[in-house]
């Protein structure tokens, strides 16, 4: 099942990691360029430390959800959650993983084990088109603001070249989306992420 007209990005992570900001930035880039976009978000209860999923579809479709076999790229804001999303990964799917684990309370208080991140990356690599990985927090610290790791991941997504936007077009969208005082760190974080995946 493939809708040839659409790029589908599936972002998975933990409530509060800033996936909504990423979808807003891509929304503003789309409006500016006239690319159709539809985004499905999670609000409410799950945001309290639970798993959140955002699906962004760029191109000619009205459906906020895609066939599970038609995800162009999975962006894991957290390594465990990237693996939990394996049902949306096919041999044609690209995967970008933030390697910073956020340990759920079930690990510290209920005896569950957090999987080995290297093993997660290895397994993801076996069954997907390609896996990119980076530490969002390291890049964010380098950019001077620990809260921009979401935009670091957006940079890594943009660097793969699968988005219908140039680097400059997304940077312009960042400028109109994030608060003025945070623009510089966000642009810097975006560029650091971009450099990881750009060919």
């Amino acid at each position: 099942m493939k809708n040839e007209n659409v790029v589908t990005i599936h972002i998975v992570g933990v409530g509060g990691q800033g996936a909504l900001t990423v979808s807003k930035i891509l929304g503003n880039a789309s409006i500016e360029k006239g690319v159709p976009i539809i985004v499905s978000e999670v609000h409410g209860m799950a945001q309290r430390g639970g798993v959140v999923q955002t699906t962004i579809r760029l191109g000619d479709t009205i459906s906020p959800l895609a066939f599970s076999s038609d995800i162009t790229v999975v962006v894991g804001f957290e390594p465990l959650e990237a693996y939990r999303a394996k049902g949306t990964i096919t041999p044609n799917t690209m995967v970008i993983v933030n390697t910073d684990p956020i340990s759920p309370v079930s690990v510290s208080s209920a005896g569950h084990k957090y999987p080995d991140v290297d093993e997660v990356l290895k397994e993801l690599g076996k069954w997907s088109r390609k896996v990119y990985h980076l530490s969002g927090s390291e890049k964010a610290a380098e950019a001077g603001n620990s809260r921009v790791s979401n935009v670091v991941m957006l940079g890594a997504l943009a660097g793969t070249g699968i988005l219908p936007f140039s680097k400059e077009e997304i940077e312009n969208a960042i400028r109109v989306t994030v608060p003025e005082k945070a623009v510089e760190a966000n642009i810097k974080g975006f560029e650091l992420g971009y450099d990881v995946t750009v060919q």
Binding site: M45, L80, E81, Y83
Partner: peptide, 10 residues
């Protein structure tokens, strides 16, 4: 891989 659950929490 055993995946620890992540329900919403306080």
């Amino acid at each position: 891989l055993p995946l620890p659950p992540r329900p919403p929490v306080l």
